Computed example of a mutant assay.
Amino acid sequence: MPGCPILTYHSQLLFGNDYRNNSHVGLAADLEVIAASGRQIIGLRELVASLRGARDLPLDELVCITFDDGPDFDWLDIEHPEHGPQPSFATLLRRHAAAHPGQRPICATSFVIADAGARHEISTQAMGREWMNDHWWREAAASGLLQIDSHGLDHRHPCLAPGDADWGHFHAIADEVSCAQQVDAANSIIAERSGQPPRIFAYPYGQASEYLRSEYLPRHGQRLGLEAAVSIEPGHFHWDSDPWFLPRYVSLAHWHSPEELASLLRG
């Protein structure tokens, strides 16, 4: 069955300057693999809109690109204190588009964490810098290059509640109140800061309780303006995919080299 892979990257993975330890090096190489495969990059919102509508896209000719957590380096070039200058994911997309003018306009999705306090704690504790800000969201959303969508309120990151076993995973979001906090409240913040309401939700850790996936989002999604949610269960997007648990492949988890990505795209 023809399918469209949805690929996922984390721009904070910067531990060197090689494919396996630097997601910026990886994305640059993978963009060339995608071009060589003959697939073209399509925005995830456009893919989901077709799932909800005409279902007329050639899935076996397409690929989606998404970024999780929303560090500044999704959009901003940085000077890394250990590994030198790093072009942002947005810069890499622009360079690729300029080098391949015959392709459709590139659009990727950045799934951002809504709460500023949570971002501050996660960034400073995990990265040692204030590298998860929201001042670039509005510019990015207006650019057409990067769509800003929701990765929840606080990612249920364990640094926010040390020693609490309900943190460090997303399975505990399994009732009306906690779902409204993680989904509704996050949507409101992201819409206000980016200027556009989120259309897609990315489950933190790729995890969803049965209640969130099968009851809350199908029941409240239209009210919230949401059309789909994505997991990190590996697999190609098909027309019969569950819109509230779409599959995605994660860089350096589901493929580890340009050759493995080329095989994944063929599959």
Rank of each mutant, 00 (worst) to 15 (best):
S11I: 06
N21K: 08
S37Y: 05
A28V: 04
R39Y: 03
D30M: 05
N17W: 06
G16L: 12
R39S: 02
T8D: 04
L51A: 11
F15W: 12
Y19E: 08
Q40F: 04
R20H: 14
Q40L: 09
L14N: 03
G38D: 02
A29C: 13
Y19D: 06
A36W: 05
A35L: 09
V33M: 05
L14E: 07
G43D: 07
A49Q: 02
I41P: 07
D30H: 08
H24R: 08
L14P: 06
N22G: 09
G26N: 11
I42P: 09
G38M: 00
I41H: 04
L27E: 00
I42V: 15
L47Y: 00
S37F: 03
L13E: 15
H24Y: 09
A28L: 01
H24D: 06
E46H: 06
Y9V: 12
V25C: 13
V33W: 10
L14I: 15
E32T: 13
S23P: 02
G16Y: 12
S37I: 01
A49R: 02
D18K: 14
E32Q: 14
S37G: 03
V25Y: 11
H24S: 07
N21I: 09
S50F: 00
F15Y: 10
R39A: 01
E46T: 12
G38I: 01
Q40P: 03
L51W: 10
G43A: 11
N17P: 01
A28H: 05
A36Y: 04
N21V: 06
L51Y: 07
L13M: 15
G16W: 14
H10A: 10
A28D: 11
G16A: 13
I34W: 09
V33F: 05
A35Y: 10
N22P: 11
Q12R: 07
L31H: 13
N22E: 06
N22M: 07
G16P: 11
L51V: 04
V48Y: 00
G16D: 14
H24P: 10
S23D: 13
G16F: 13
N17M: 10
L31Q: 12
A36D: 13
A28G: 03
Q12T: 07
V48M: 06
N17D: 14
N17C: 10
L47V: 00
S37P: 09
T8N: 13
E46D: 14
N17F: 05
I34Q: 09
V25P: 10
A35Q: 15
V25S: 13
T8P: 03
A35H: 13
E32I: 12
